[in-house]
């Protein structure tokens, strides 16, 4: 790896970090290429590896809903904590300044929500009682015998006398 104009292995000035980093990234790259070639075997087309162009499809189950765009970048725990913390501060700042306004607005919104919800509940209840009543009439009608279908004709025979 060392060329003639580079400092030798034992040199005081050796750019150790650079060398290490280069070696590491090279070996990682080699692995990546290898991985790409494995995924490629599935289809015969000569397009670039599928791994880089991934998008979500709906083969999925359960109630968990993805909250945003899907990414393959990972967040370190430290950074996640920091983001959380900053969010909290920002929120507090905003709260202090806008408190009055927010309070007022929230109160109004809540009033509207309440009304809506009650309306919805009422409609739902109404429809449910209607359904219930309608189904009771089905039972009562049967008791009165209005749904009796008499058997007419000779019926249906399938198959024949063989096993």
């Amino acid at each position: 790896m060392c060329t003639a104009n580079m400092p030798s292995k034992n040199s005081v000035n050796k750019p150790k970090d650079n060398l290490n980093r280069q070696r590491k990234s090279k070996s990682l790259g080699r692995k990546k290429v290898l991985r790409g070639s494995i995924t490629k075997t599935r289809s015969t087309s000569t397009e670039p590896s599928a791994a880089s162009t991934s998008s979500a499809v709906a083969l999925y189950t359960g109630a968990v809903q993805p909250t945003g765009p899907v990414t393959s970048n990972t967040l370190s725990k430290k950074r996640a904590k920091k983001i959380e913390r900053n969010k909290k501060y920002a929120k507090a700042r905003k709260f202090n300044s806008d408190q009055l306004l927010v309070d007022l607005q929230a109160k109004e919104e809540m009033d509207i929500d309440d009304d809506n919800e009650e309306d919805l509940k009422e409609v739902k209840k109404k429809s449910e009682t209607f359904v219930r009543e309608a189904l009771w009439t089905v039972i009562e009608d049967v008791a009165a015998g209005s749904f009796q279908i008499d058997v007419s004709g000779e019926g249906t025979t399938l198959g024949g006398p063989v096993f």
């Binding site: 599935r42 991934s54 998008s55 499809v57 083969l59 999925y60 993805p66």
Partner: peptide, 13 residues
């Protein structure tokens, strides 16, 4: 959870 499959593979499969 969603499985991730590339558009090209989706078309093929």
């Amino acid at each position: 959870m969603e499985l991730q499959i590339s558009q090209r593979d989706t078309d093929v499969l």
